[in-house]
Design a protein around this nucleic acid. Structure first.
Lengths: 168, 168
DNA sequence: ATAATCTTTCAATAAGTTTTGAAAATTCAG
DNA sequence: CTGAATTTTCAAAACTTATTGAAAGATTAT
């Protein structure tokens, strides 16, 4: 396989994966493009490489910057802005984890916490069953949140080496 | 808050969360409904409670059964089928993890493995940079997969107690 | 076998999401 | 300040995914 072919392949596949992940397909493609680019790219480069509109390119690059996956690069004597992706895969993963935690876990805990204090007899079987179910979900979500926090803060080697020791 | 109100609240919120997760909103609502129901429900019950069509109810219940999150219950002397959700939250979580691994991680590894063997000089800086980047992603995804496999197979107490020891 | 009851399928439609492209806003050099 | 270059916004259009509901397919009681 030729290098350019492989890059194309990677970009397309990353896009498909992204959509299976609930991440916008174009955002995933822009990310992939910047990941395998040998130098920072401008909005025009991105538009051209992915055959997408200016608005689309701009929007997705900005989302990627908000996720902390892409940085803006200023080149002296050039009006255009250039963009470059974080290349350390552990950092990429923790940043994605952080976003998913924020979008998935945190709202869940928020909702669960609003669901305490049911009116009526606490000894009533129905009330008890419901409260206990919600509590077990809450407890679980709390543990998951702690785990993700640890992973997000962890240094790569520390985390994997400890984990592998643990599961051995 | 009244019990029925709290249940409604939980169902609606679980649905919203589901869609933020890339899980079909109705599927999440059906799941939530069955999670807090005090007895198994029929398709008609589900249609009524969630104000959805028969086709929709049927389809989502079947998806939930495929995920292993819901079981069909047969009641003697009743033609209708009833449905009941897995209540053990750890089992629910591992089943969801399994589906996500299948949809997200496995295809990623498949793609990455196709991207080896780039033609041309292996000492060429561009080729080298690309290959190394793909390899680091592959290595990472492989670790993540192993970790999820461990979690999916793990018994609840074993997993949390080990993990908490680790992060302490 | 027949009819009643229930489940499944699927084409049409509705709802939701992403993309475009042109206009508005911003930035910067002279 | 002016005007060229660039980025940002956003309403409309294209595309994608979910839902409906009626018809077809199963299943069971009589």
């Amino acid at each position: 396989m030729k290098l350019d072919e492989a890059k194309q392949q990677f970009i397309q596949s990353w896009g498909v994966l992204g959509s299976q992940w609930g991440i916008n397909r174009t955002m995933a493609q822009v990310h992939a493009l910047l990941l395998v680019a040998s130098a920072p790219l401008s909005t025009d480069n991105i538009m051209e490489e992915l055959s997408i509109s200016r608005g689309n390119a701009n929007m997705n690059v900005r989302d990627l910057m908000n996720w902390g996956l892409v940085d803006k690069i200023i080149v002296q004597g050039d009006r255009k802005e250039y963009f470059s992706a974080e290349k350390d895969i552990w950092k990429v993963a923790t940043k994605i984890m952080y976003q998913r935690k924020k979008r998935e876990l945190d709202p869940m805990l928020k909702v669960l916490n609003q669901l305490t204090d049911i009116e009526g007899d606490k000894r009533n079987a129905e009330v008890k069953a419901f409260t206990e179910r919600i509590d077990s979900i809450k407890k679980f979500a709390g543990q998951a949140e702690k785990t993700m926090d640890v992973m997000i803060k962890a240094e790569e080697n520390w985390f994997w080496s400890s984990f592998l020791k643990l599961i051995k």
